[in-house]
Design a binder for these strands. Structure first.
Length: 585
RNA sequence: GCGCUCGUAGCUCAGUUGGAUAGAGUAUCGGCCUCCGAAGCCGAAGGUCGUGGGUUCGACUCCCGCCGAGCGCGCCA
């Protein structure tokens, strides 16, 4: 309907241009919108006001001309001009009713579109370092990334969901060393655990698993382990130097193979845990991409060579730098350290290049603390000759946690955090998913744990699910009362739906496809959750003011057709949000 | 200090990319179950859209200056 009206307006404008009433060379973009207030009709257009300036004429006058030259359409009941020059379209109410039959016919496909057909996009999200379990902070990225992926899929994109596994680098060495030290403790070795090591309980359990399968194989004495290791911070030393020295001791005491064994045991245990955690949260990936595999495959060398060939690399103080300032970054970045090791940034460049070469545009969902990282990645892509617009970075703000009215600091290192699993066990996956995507991603979010856990019934999700369950309940009543519902009869009698609540509900249903594509194109799942809330509200109002199961069989079927259409749309929307639509609750 | 994100009802947040009288939830107050589920509905009250300028037919939205919050500014990842 919207495109129809736009076409009519364009046509009218064209006619006026031919007549010479309007200049030919007008480049205006017609904006036709659903009205906020239905006293303004169903659609409103600002065309006349936009035209007022270039033509130097009164907008109302132009509006009248446009209306006079508008072709008639059975669906348009009347057209009005309103201050300061809006053209308001009032549609024939019955023309909107058709959506009920469209919904019942298309089912779960209703609302989907082909806007993104032929486009391949990779959404990379969560990608937390496998150094500990996911906490509630990661949950937001997980829910957001998964929903954005679903939305893009619904409008026709070919979506590839990926988790980039940081299974290389210093953090992982610290993790492996932490595990080994805990293992040594379990072998009754007396030692002081490094202040910069990972202290969570899960480290203990990984260590004891290793002990259970390998016995004393990796044992060593404390004297040996701490030989020539500089003091830790509490001992007046530097905690970074201390832990680095311990890593070196671990590698030297254990053989390469044994160090790798402990390293992999830690990695696999934690990553496995993250995987099942996300699965349980309804978040599924097409691929778990290993950073280490980039090193092994030579992809990093290849990417660096490409940067060198582009002339944007230089050597300074023994390291190789990428001249990202050529592309607007604040400072140049090291890619190869003076030690010869490549940096995390080098891996990331290779990873992005690799993804583009696989034919995907890239959407990275990152925590807002990484925003300073965006320019250098984009710069690297540009230097390698890639179109930087193929990379879109979506930043998700942190959720600030409150417990007992106090702000909580979370740290994986210290082992002090609330896990995503704990949250899920308390409020359920559905409520958590919905809660996370209710706010738009850039908003700083206050997350009151006590409220989320104790009063989970207040979660607005239940309001939406309840509407769905109510429709199901009505259909059960129908059977119990031995009444009948014939969809075809209902669809033939849609004209009987003339109550205000019915018109409102139908209006709401008509807006779903547009809302969906808007939410998808803007990467804004919260738009969908707000829509569903609104749809549910229209349904509940209807439910409270009219009886569906009435004796008039034609009217009854028409009403049931309407609420079943409503149920379908609720179901479609909730599915995209990764939330169940229960038949009873 | 520089950069990014943000500031809207007591609280938590929307605001259709510049449109009409700034909206929801929650909390508060008042109504609604002989009736398909009251996890619901209807109503009241609640605002200097951080602040001061600017751009125009029109600004919560765009530009500039302040105030305030969070984050970032490693040869960490």
């Amino acid at each position: 309907m919207k495109t129809r009206l736009t076409a009519l307006l364009k046509q009218s404008m064209g006619t006026l241009q031919k007549q010479g009433a309007l200049p030919i060379d007008l480049a205006v973009n017609i904006k036709l919108e659903h009205t906020r207030d239905n006293s303004h009709g169903d659609f409103a257009c600002n065309l006349a006001m936009v035209l007022a300036k270039p033509t130097k004429r009164n907008p109302r006058e132009i509006a009248q001309l446009l209306i006079d030259n508008l072709d008639s359409d059975v669906n348009i009941e009347k057209v009005e001009i309103a201050d300061p020059g809006f053209i308001n379209f009032f549609l024939n109410p019955l023309s909107q009713h058709q959506v009920v039959s469209t919904i019942l016919e298309k089912g779960e496909a209703f609302g989907k579109s082909k806007l993104g057909t032929g486009k391949k996009v990779q959404v990379e999200f969560v990608s937390a370092n496998p150094t500990g379990p996911l906490h509630v902070g990661h949950g937001r990225g997980a829910a957001y990334g998964a929903t954005v992926s679903n939305l893009l899929g619904a409008i026709g994109y070919e979506v590839h969901r990926e988790y980039y596994v940081n299974d290389a680098g210093r953090q992982m060495d610290i993790l492996a060393t932490s595990v080994w030290l805990r293992y040594l403790e379990s072998c009754d070795v007396q030692l002081v655990f490094p202040s910069n090591g990972y202290k969570g309980d899960y480290i203990l359990s990984i260590a004891s698993d290793i002990k259970a399968t390998h016995g004393d194989l990796f044992c060593s004495n404390a004297q040996d382990v701490f030989e020539n290791v500089p003091a830790d911070e509490p001992g007046g030393g530097d905690k970074e130097q201390h832990i680095d020295a311990l890593i070196a001791r671990a590698k030297s005491i254990l053989s390469d193979a044994n160090y790798r064994l402990i390293f992999d045991a830690a990695l696999n245990s934690i990553l496995g845990d993250i995987r099942t955690d996300l699965e349980d949260f309804g978040v599924h990936y097409d691929d778990w991409f290993s950073e280490r595999s980039l090193m092994d495959s030579g992809a990093i060398t290849k990417a660096i060579d490409r940067l060198k060939a582009s002339g944007h690399m230089y050597e300074k103080e023994g390291a190789w730098w990428f001249k990202s300032t050529d592309f607007g970054d604040e400072k140049d970045r090291v890619v190869i350290r003076d030690s010869g090791q490549t940096t995390y940034f080098a891996s990331d460049i290779a990873y992005h290049l690799h993804t583009l070469e696989r034919g995907y545009d890239i959407i990275d969902v990152w925590g807002a603390d990484h925003h300073g990282y965006v320019p250098r990645v984009r710069a690297a892509l540009q230097a390698m000759g890639a179109d930087p617009s193929r990379l879109k970075v979506l930043l998700v703000q942190f959720a600030v946690l409150y417990k007992n009215g106090e702000k909580m600091q979370m740290s994986t290192r210290s082992g002090e955090f609330v896990t995503l699993r704990t949250l899920r066990e308390k409020v359920g996956s559905d409520a958590a998913r919905y809660f996370y995507v209710m706010r738009k991603a850039e908003q700083h979010m206050d997350f009151d744990l006590d409220l989320a856990c104790s009063e989970s019934n207040d979660n607005p999700l239940y309001y939406v699910q309840y509407a769905h369950a109510r429709v199901c309940s009505v259909m059960k009543q129908l059977a119990e009362k031995k009444m009948s519902y014939t969809p075809s009869i209902g669809l033939e009698n849609l004209a009987r739906l003339t109550e205000q609540q019915e018109l409102d509900l139908i209006d709401s249903l008509n807006r779903y496809p547009e809302k969906l594509s808007q939410a998808a194109l803007n990467y804004e799942p919260h738009q969908l959750s707000y829509y569903l809330r609104d749809l549910a509200n229209n349904f509940h109002s209807y439910y409270n003011s009219h009886q569906f199961l009435v004796d008039d069989a034609a009217l009854c079927s028409a009403r049931l057709a309407l609420i079943n259409a409503c149920k379908q749309v609720l179901q479609n929307g909730l599915k995209l949000l990764g939330v169940n639509a229960p038949e009873s609750m």
